[in-house]
Design a protein around this nucleic acid. Structure first.
Lengths: 138, 138
DNA sequence: CTTGAACCTCTAGTTCCTAGAGATGTTACG
DNA sequence: CGTAACATCTCTAGGAACTAGAGGTTCAAG
């Protein structure tokens, strides 16, 4: 049996976050000692690892809830899991596309200003004030 | 003079968000009609445009506060503005790098599962449960 | 002058945690 | 077996950047 601190060390998930996941229903309520402290089984540790991994990949709590539900029922179709993963992939790709546009714009803005002038003719500030100077949509 | 709704339509910033920016001190308190409604000048509209543009580029409220402060003092050095823009650029680049790693992993996971099987041998779920299957760090 | 759209303030909710207070439990050492 | 030192408990609040809703007032057009 593992204490919450051990779980935290082994998974890299902070203690309050573990309790938060329990409140959210992602982790089942573990056994307790006579003094009311949480004691986890290997299954609890594995479950937290699953959640951590999914969070690292950017899945929302809701998506993880659905994935766990499927994980608990090995006989169910995995179409939902596939759909969730693909939705997450699209989401990540959309974010990358957007951030690349921002990167282009920020590079343009930042390289036109070396920080040696005054705010009055700073390209950073001028650009922000006048969107028409931008080359890409954002 | 513009009403808050006009400002909203012209900038694409929602009305409650405009009031929120006012609360946060990014927008000065505008004049009011006898009936207590906000009436903005062209300067107010321009200011909101500046904020909107900066938010679209991902600057935080705090960063925008600093940028506005500089914008108000054209005689100050623009070194700070330059530093803020470069910090934002680095931030965006770091996010892109991370998301690209996630994209790789998600692609790998999703393409191994076409959604036709059962949860028991779903690669999406197996991957989440076993981090060692991953090829990149995240 | 009336109607309907727009506006007002205020509170609370969203997401995913994080921080802190104050109390209690567990464990290793002597 | 006692006592430090450390871990854990619950509960509340905060943070970022909004968004939503209730309940009430004002504006502008006809």
């Amino acid at each position: 049996m593992f204490s919450i601190g051990t779980l935290s060390r082994r998974t890299g998930v902070k203690i309050p976050t573990i309790r938060y996941y329990e409140d959210m229903g992602l982790l089942p309520e573990p056994e307790r000692t006579a003094g009311n402290q949480r004691r986890y089984s290997q299954a609890g540790l594995d479950r937290l690892g699953f959640i951590k991994h999914a969070r690292d990949l950017g899945f929302t709590i809701e998506a993880i809830r659905a994935l766990i539900e499927l994980h608990e029922h090995p006989d169910h179709s995995c179409a939902t899991a596939n759909a969730i993963a693909n939705a997450q992939l699209s989401d990540v790709q959309a974010k990358i596309a957007r951030l690349k546009r921002l990167e282009t714009e920020l590079q343009r803005i930042a390289t036109h200003c070396d920080g040696s002038g005054t705010a009055g003719d700073c390209y950073v500030l001028t650009s922000l004030a006048d969107h028409s100077l931008c080359e890409t949509a954002h």
